[in-house]
Amino acid sequence: MNAIIKVKNLTRVFDVSKPWLNRVIERLPKSYLTAVSEVDFEIQRNSVYALVGESGSGKSTIGKMVVGLLNASSGAVEVDGIDLSSEQDAEKVDAVRSNIQMIFQDPFASLNPRWKVRDIIAEPVAARGGDTKGLSERLLEQVGLSAADADKYPHEFSGGQRQRICIARSLASEPKIIVCDEPTSALDVSVQSQVLNLMSDLQEDLGLTYLFISHDLTVVQHMADKIGVLYLGRLVEEAPRDVLFSSPKHPYTQMLFDAAPRIDGFGREVEPPKGEIPDAINPPSGCAFHPRCPMATADCSKSRPEMRKIGDTRVACHLAE
């Protein structure tokens, strides 16, 4: 198959122990937080793959590992067939790196306030010693701003315009893949639609592949071709968009869909989901969702369900059918 990104058995563990002196005095063991646990998926070329989940589900951590901002504890990310963590040939790694860019959530924090927009946008190219003449101006026009904006500073722009600048910067090195970590959650609805439309247009024009990370199901439903649902660092379900939204298989996905407020749900009385996301340092045994799951059986608390393929869906649940 024509997969541009292959994520294999990816795991990331953070050491969240107290400082050593506290551990000695208070006789505490080391403690670890498994942010991402054995996640497997592939992203097809020129498609949009979305990761959804609530806070603490590990979606941003996966995004950071894909672009190489974090190292994996085990498992691998392969981009264009090259494993970034084990590849020895620096030239190959560099070529792959410049093919992946990232758009961050907060356009106020991800632009250097002391730099002019021109320098911000050209930086990914300038850092590699490329030719940046006229680059920023061209990119600004491509994202719907004007070339004259290149001489301004970030504070002169509104949130939506800043996110456009972030998008322009991510396009500077002509990447094939863009990891978008909650690109519109800091934006108002009317501006969000502008940015989403821009992203769709760019994907079509430039043949981009997006890894789209979001907690907003309506945005994901609009943007994604394939969706992976994460819970407590584990991939619980993965399916093409229409399949996922028409027949969610995992009880967690079903709960998520039921709980999301609906714009046409006037006076809807929902039975709100029970409980909260458990502590990732001491996750529940077996299936991580079993304490909140309405259909859980004794088996669910004992063994962790494997990913099974049902039709077009992959689901990690003992009971799904």
Binding site: Q161, V189, S190, S193, Q194, L196, T218, I263
Partner: peptide
């Protein structure tokens, strides 16, 4: 009406979202 139309759910199945030009 523009605000409602620009929410992704309202434009379900369409390639592009309706957008309100400009900002407040």
């Amino acid at each position: 009406s523009g605000l409602m139309a620009s929410t992704p759910l309202a434009s379900q199945g369409q390639k592009r979202l309706r957008q309100i030009p400009g900002s407040m």
